[in-house]
C-alpha cells in the first residue's frame, strides 16, 4: 500500500459505488425520518439498452412517434382530418390544473353551455404534476364531480424543473389516476423554452391526448407568464378545435354563438399554502 498511495482512495470510491449500485438494485423504498431515500441511477448504467437518461429517451420517443416539430402542428392540412367518431353525449367536464385554468374557463364554459355539457373548473394555484400526483388529486376530483371527461391544464409551474425523472413518474401517476375516464392534457403556454416538461407530457400522453399550447403566440399580462383574457380565449378556441378534430376523444364542442356569461364557481386551492 505504501508504494500505491492512491489505492486507498480507489477502494473508497469502489466501496461507495458498490453501496450505491447495490441500493439502486433494491426494489423496496426506504424512508428515513419520513424522507424517501432516493436511489442512484447506477442500475441504469449497468443495464444495457436502458442507460439513456430522460432527455434522450424523450427525444427518441419523439422522433419515433413522428410528432411534428414546433409550429408544424398547426399547419396540418384540414383534409387530413378523417371523418371522426364524435361522442355526442353530454359530458361532465372536469377542467382542472394550475392558475392557467382561470384564463380558459370562461370561454370553455360557453362551449359547454352551447353543447350541453357541464363544466367543473378547479384552479389549484401554484400546483404542478407533483402536487396532483402525490395528493391523488385528479382521482379525488373525478370522483367528486363524477366527471366523464377531463381537461387537465398543467405544467406552467414546471417549465424550468430539472428533476425530469420524477416528473415522468408524476405524469404516469396522474395518468393512472384518470382510471379510464376520457382525459386530455393541455400543455403549458410557455413564455420561455422549457427544460423538458412538454416533451415528457407528450411522451406519456401521446399526441392525440396532449395539446402543445407552447406553439401558440400569446399576449401576456404584466407577470409575463399568464395570457391576457383575449389571448386565453384564443387559446381556448384552439383547444376546442383540437378536441374535436385531432384528439383521441372528440366530443361535441361547436363554437358558442354568443356569450352565455354563466356564473362560474370554480373550486380554488393554493398549493403554496
Amino acid at each position: 500500500m505504501k508504494n500505491y498511495p492512491l489505492l486507498s482512495i480507489v477502494f473508497l470510491l469502489l466501496f461507495s459505488v458498490s453501496v450505491l449500485t447495490l441500493f439502486s438494485y433494491t426494489d423496496d423504498n426506504i424512508s428515513l425520518l419520513g424522507i424517501d431515500i432516493k436511489k442512484s441511477r447506477f442500475k441504469e448504467l449497468f443495464t444495457p439498452n436502458n442507460s439513456s437518461f430522460v432527455s434522450d429517451s424523450v427525444n427518441n420517443s419523439l422522433s419515433a412517434s413522428g410528432f411534428p416539430e414546433s409550429g408544424e402542428l398547426n399547419a396540418l392540412a384540414p383534409d387530413s382530418i378523417i371523418a371522426r367518431q364524435i361522442d355526442t353525449n353530454s359530458q361532465r367536464i372536469l377542467l382542472a390544473g394550475d392558475s392557467m385554468v382561470e384564463g380558459l374557463m370562461y370561454l370553455l364554459s360557453d362551449y359547454c353551455v352551447e353543447n350541453g355539457h357541464e363544466l367543473f373548473p378547479v384552479i389549484w394555484y401554484s400546483s404542478s404534476s407533483k402536487a396532483y400526483a402525490q395528493k391523488n388529486k385528479l382521482k379525488e376530483l373525478i370522483n367528486k364531480y363524477n366527471a366523464t371527461y377531463v381537461i387537465l391544464v398543467l405544467g406552467a409551474n414546471e417549465l424550468f424543473v430539472r428533476d425530469l425523472d420524477n416528473r415522468d413518474e408524476y405524469i404516469k401517476e396522474i395518468l393512472n389516476q384518470s382510471d379510464g375516464v376520457k382525459f386530455v392534457w393541455i400543455g403549458p403556454p410557455n413564455w420561455k423554452e422549457d427544460t423538458g416538461i412538454n416533451d415528457l407530457i407528450l411522451k406519456n400522453m401521446g399526441k392525440d391526448r396532449y395539446y402543445p399550447s407552447k406553439n401558440l403566440k400569446y399576449d401576456r399580462i404584466s407577470d409575463g407568464a399568464h395570457p391576457t383574457r383575449k389571448s386565453s380565449n384564443m387559446w381556448a378556441e384552439k383547444i376546442a378545435e383540437w378536441i374535436v378534430n385531432e384528439s383521441k376523444y372528440p366530443i361535441l364542442f361547436n363554437q358558442p354563438e354568443k356569450e352565455y356569461r354563466k356564473k362560474l364557481s370554480p373550486m380554488m386551492m393554493n398549493y403554496a399554502k
Partner: peptide
C-alpha cells in the same frame, strides 16, 4: 454526500408562489 446530492437533485423548488 452522494446521497444528499441525489436527494437534493430531485427536490425541486416550489414554483409560482406570488399568489401567496
Amino acid at each position: 454526500l452522494i446521497q444528499v446530492i441525489l436527494q437534493i437533485q430531485t427536490e425541486s423548488i416550489q414554483p409560482f408562489i406570488y399568489y401567496q
